[in-house]
């Protein structure tokens, strides 16, 4: 072996040794670094926890804001207006209502016995009945599923009694009446029991059955839109509108 040959060999051997040493260091490093990693982990954990608390704080702040907005919304004019609108709608009869009340059923007095005459419900009589009901404390009335509102017309068109433009020729006919309270319903029931108009219906070959007051009588909403023609808003300061 010549010296010249050995130099290259030595250099390569040295490089190999260097590489081995570096690799050894790198591979065996984690043992040393592990402890540091623990600290780093702790620090990282701390950092993450800080971030978490920060986020929680943010969430809380946002929730507070949301709550604030909610209360603001509740107290806003819009809400008051909405409530008023709902109230008015209920009053005008545009919503379904259920409550304590009574149920009257109009049915033909004689079913197939004797000479059958078609029962005729006269609008006058119905109007009278409704007036009576109103007088004795009814708040919401429906006749045959038709809501009776302030502008409801009951009239005879071609020998057919119509309410809100719909015929009332299907018997038995249900009249649902809602009163303010159970007590009022009871009173209403008693009043109707002795009512004169019930007897009047009999002349028209109709028998009125009055059911006992129930807790949940349903009165449907008025389905058409209410058209106001000859009314104007009352100007403030004046007693009556034009």
């Amino acid at each position: 072996m010549g010296g010249k040959k050995n130099i290259g060999f030595t250099i390569t051997a040295a490089i190999l040794g260097l590489m081995v040493a570096i690799q050894f260091r790198t591979v065996s490093e984690p043992v040393v670094r592990d402890t540091r990693d623990t600290w780093e982990l702790r620090e990282d954990l701390m950092k993450e926890k800080e971030i978490q608390s920060e986020l929680l704080r943010e969430i809380r702040a946002n929730e507070e804001k949301l709550e604030k907005y909610k209360t603001e919304k509740q107290q806003s004019k819009e809400n008051v207006l909405r409530a008023t609108l709902d109230e008015l709608k209920t009053e005008a009869g545009l919503t379904d209502i259920s409550g304590p009340g009574i149920k009257l059923v109009l049915a033909p007095a004689f079913d197939g016995i004797g000479p059958t005459t078609e029962p005729y419900l006269s609008p006058d009589l119905l109007r009278k009945l409704i007036n009576e009901l109103n007088m004795y404390g009814a708040t919401h009335i429906s006749v045959g599923g038709e809501r009776v509102i302030n502008t409801t017309v009951i009239r005879d068109i071609n020998r057919e009694t119509k309410i809100n433009g719909r015929s009332l020729n299907q018997f038995p006919l249900e009249i649902n009446v809602i009163a303010d309270s159970g007590e009022t319903a009871e009173k209403l029931y008693n009043r109707m029991k002795v009512s004169k108009s019930v007897e009047d219906f009999f002349i028209d070959n109709l028998r009125v059955t009055i059911h006992r007051p129930a807790e949940n009588i349903l009165v449907p909403a008025y389905v058409d839109s209410i058209r106001v023609r000859s009314m104007e808003a009352v100007k403030q300061g004046k007693g009556e509108g034009g």
Partner: peptide, 24 residues
């Protein structure tokens, strides 16, 4: 013959002393 071994040992020593590390 001993020179390469010396070189190897020197390389290892240098590697260990210089504290060179490469990324994992």
């Amino acid at each position: 013959m001993w020179l390469p071994v010396m070189g190897l040992i020197i390389g290892v020593i240098i590697g260990l002393l210089t504290d060179i590390r490469i990324p994992e």
